[in-house]
Amino acid sequence: MATGESDCLFCRIVAGEIPAEIVHRGEAVVGFRDVAPQAPVHVLFVPTAHHANAAALAAAAPEAAAELVTAAAAVADAEGLDGHYRLVFNTGTGVGQSVFHAHLHLLGGRSMTWPPG
């Protein structure tokens, strides 16, 4: 069960109150497919505890931040991305964060340019 805010979309997904296609579930991290994918593989990884953004997560629970990346790498391997994928944290509305629960995007399965956006 997530510890967080009752109106937080991602806390409610972690708690099983809102359906999602879960691809990873660990003690501190849940991964699920994005409902509006930006690549053939687009999975979001969230800590089970509520933290507003990546910086807040890293300050409060660095082990959970590391587990997000470890879980994303495992799912990328399981999805056959062969070491070719992008990991993205958005922090703040000015760069696209729309749900204020820290989350890591795993994107892969297509070519991507640099810089993004």
Rank of each mutant, 00 (worst) to 15 (best):
T3M: 09
G4R: 12
G4L: 13
E5N: 11
D7F: 04
C8L: 10
C8R: 12
C8N: 13
F10Y: 15
C11D: 07
I13G: 13
I13L: 13
V14P: 04
V14G: 08
P19K: 15
P19D: 15
A20K: 14
A20V: 06
A20T: 09
A20E: 11
E21Q: 15
R25M: 07
E27M: 06
V29S: 03
G31L: 01
D34S: 13
V35D: 14
V41Q: 10
V43M: 01
L44I: 09
L44G: 02
F45L: 03
V46E: 13
V46P: 05
P47L: 14
T48W: 05
T48V: 14
A49M: 11
H51S: 12
H51T: 11
A52Y: 09
A52E: 15
N53R: 14
N53W: 10
N53E: 12
A56N: 03
A58F: 06
A61N: 13
P62Q: 10
E63D: 15
A64D: 04
A65I: 00
A65G: 12
V69C: 06
V69L: 14
T70R: 11
A72V: 03
A74C: 02
A76Y: 08
D77S: 05
G80P: 00
G80W: 06
G80F: 02
G83A: 12
G83K: 11
G83N: 08
H84P: 00
H84Q: 14
R86G: 05
L87R: 07
L87E: 10
L87Y: 05
F89K: 11
N90R: 13
G92C: 10
V95T: 11
G96I: 05
F100A: 12
F100W: 15
H105Q: 01
H105N: 08
G109A: 08
G109K: 04
G109M: 04
R110I: 05
T113E: 07
T113L: 01
P115N: 04
P116Q: 08
G117N: 10
